[in-house]
Write a protein that binds this DNA or RNA. Sequence first.
DNA 1: TATACATATAACAATATGGTTATATGGTTT
DNA 2: AAACCATATAACCATATTGTTATATGTATA
Lengths: 107, 107
Amino acid sequence: MEFEKLADILKALADPTRLKILSLLRTRDCCVCELVPIFNISQPAISKHVSRLKTAELVRETRKGQWVFYSINEKRLDEIGYALSNLPDLSEELRKLEQQGLTVTCE
Amino acid sequence: MEFEKLADILKALADPTRLKILSLLRTRDCCVCELVPIFNISQPAISKHVSRLKTAELVRETRKGQWVFYSINEKRLDEIGYALSNLPDLSEELRKLEQQGLTVTCE
DNA sequence: TATACATATAACAATATGGTTATATGGTTT
DNA sequence: AAACCATATAACCATATTGTTATATGTATA
């Protein structure tokens, strides 16, 4: 995964409210009106948080009557964990740097 | 790991420049003056990025003469991957919600 | 159809983020 | 001591983030 895209998904994860929402969704799918009383922020704030998670494909939504239920995309979460433990090999960049004589040698 | 702390570390990771710096450090330790020509941002910008990574304990620094070499803390990175795949169980919170009659049932 | 409820969007404010240039600090070398 | 090089910090700016309140939209129901 490219750095820009990985960074975007990490930004979606990098908020305590959104992490707690994801944790809650591990137990079961929830709709916005269930999440609101758990946090002390407004309904639009919760709505924006789940929307951010949806954009990053960390959750999916399903409308059921007047409610919209959100579910966690565990696969996406594992994908990110994997990407972090397997960051790309950039030794080629460092070799180029060396060819330009820009590396620091220091025994 | 608590949500606040995990979010802080994820914020440190959630930037393409910092992700690339971490990738470079996988190959070998680097000092700031080696990183600067790889990116087209200023030396102080790079300095602030590595400082952010250091605060999150994602890198460690070692002074060698006039240079400061940064090394990756792979353990920390794996820790985060693990935390993401094992978010806490908040079923208790949802049980409380149910007792308050705030859950939505919808067959 | 009118009303009610759940969710999303708009407009705004305060703060955080990521860059800049200028300058200070720490260590090396002449 | 003076000059030099690497790095960090300060002051600043533009933009992004995260919350607010007010309002629009979508669906169900009296």
